[in-house]
Write a protein that binds this DNA or RNA. Structure first.
Length: 104
DNA sequence: AGCCTGACTCGGA
DNA sequence: CTCCGAGCCAGGC
């Protein structure tokens, strides 16, 4: 996978406004990498100190994807709630309400 | 090459 | 609604 791909993925994630979320597949599309939803996850997993709002990326079911190393999920939810995103009792957010829909 | 794994997704049971 | 199963693609062995 070309090194530049990660940069495009990060650029797409950076476009997500505060208080909104995007799905992995959606980011893949915006980065011109249709079908690479999993790679988006890898790219986010590889983040170190880059300034990228990784917490605004959730899966297609409006849930926070679990990592191999548990713990970061709580941090993600905490950050989203700090931006006004609400979760239901089942730990899921409403994509209908919070998903970012960039125009054309 | 083959096999396994993973911050994914969609559709069917 | 939840649980698979299959498809998906990149990476590491």
């Amino acid at each position: 996978m070309p090194p530049g791909d990660y940069a495009r993925i990060y650029a797409a994630v950076r476009r997500i406004p505060r208080g909104r979320v995007a799905t992995y597949g959606q980011i893949a599309l915006l980065a011109d990498l249709p079908g690479h939803a999993r790679q988006v996850g890898y790219a986010l997993n590889a983040l170190e100190h880059e300034r990228v709002p990784w917490h605004r990326v959730v899966n297609a079911q409006g849930r926070i994807s679990l990592r191999a190393v548990s713990g970061a999920e709580f941090e993600q939810r905490r950050r989203l709630e700090a931006e006004g995103v609400e979760f239901d009792a089942a730990g899921r957010l409403s994509l209908a309400r919070f998903q970012w829909r960039p125009r054309a």
